[in-house]
């Protein structure tokens, strides 16, 4: 089974993404903050990581920076899933090293299209 790690402080969004992805055959792991996500991913590298940007503690960018510094995670796709959708936000995200930048509201169709 393909494994995906979702980091988001909103329980409803975690459940939404979990439902969307589990129907597509993903095994979903969840972290409610960036630090936990880094620990979980380092302990057991997933194939895909979805990061919220505005999280308490480590934000998405800082979490990304730490994940990118873990050698075992080289080549893992890390997507931002965020409601920050102003002009320039996406360019900033891609420049920081996200594999892709997905803005909320995100429908199941858009998510599956982006990950395919």
């Amino acid at each position: 089974m393909r494994r995906v790690l979702i980091a988001d402080d909103s329980a409803s969004n975690r459940e939404l993404l979990r439902t969307m992805l589990s129907h597509e055959g993903w095994t979903v792991e969840e972290a409610r903050d960036g630090l936990t996500a880094v620990e979980m991913a380092t302990a057991r590298p997933p194939e895909l990581i979805l990061l919220d940007i505005q999280m308490p503690g480590l934000n998405g960018y800082e979490t990304l920076r730490r994940l990118r510094a873990v050698p075992a995670l080289a080549g893992v796709a890390i997507y931002a899933v965020t409601a920050s959708a102003m002009e320039g936000d996406e360019q900033r995200g891609l420049a920081a090293g996200f594999t892709g930048y997905l803005t909320k509201p995100l429908t199941r169709r858009l998510l599956l299209a982006a990950l395919s």
């Binding site: 409803s12 409601a83 920050s84 803005t103 199941r108």
Partner: peptide
């Protein structure tokens, strides 16, 4: 302010739209 407003409105709208889609798609 515009950036915050955009973010704060989009976040709940995201789950509303998303769950409505899941229901309509009869996945559960």
């Amino acid at each position: 302010f515009l950036a915050s407003m955009s973010h704060e409105l989009r976040s709940p709208l995201h789950t509303i739209i998303g769950f409505a889609e899941l229901l309509a798609d009869e996945l559960e």
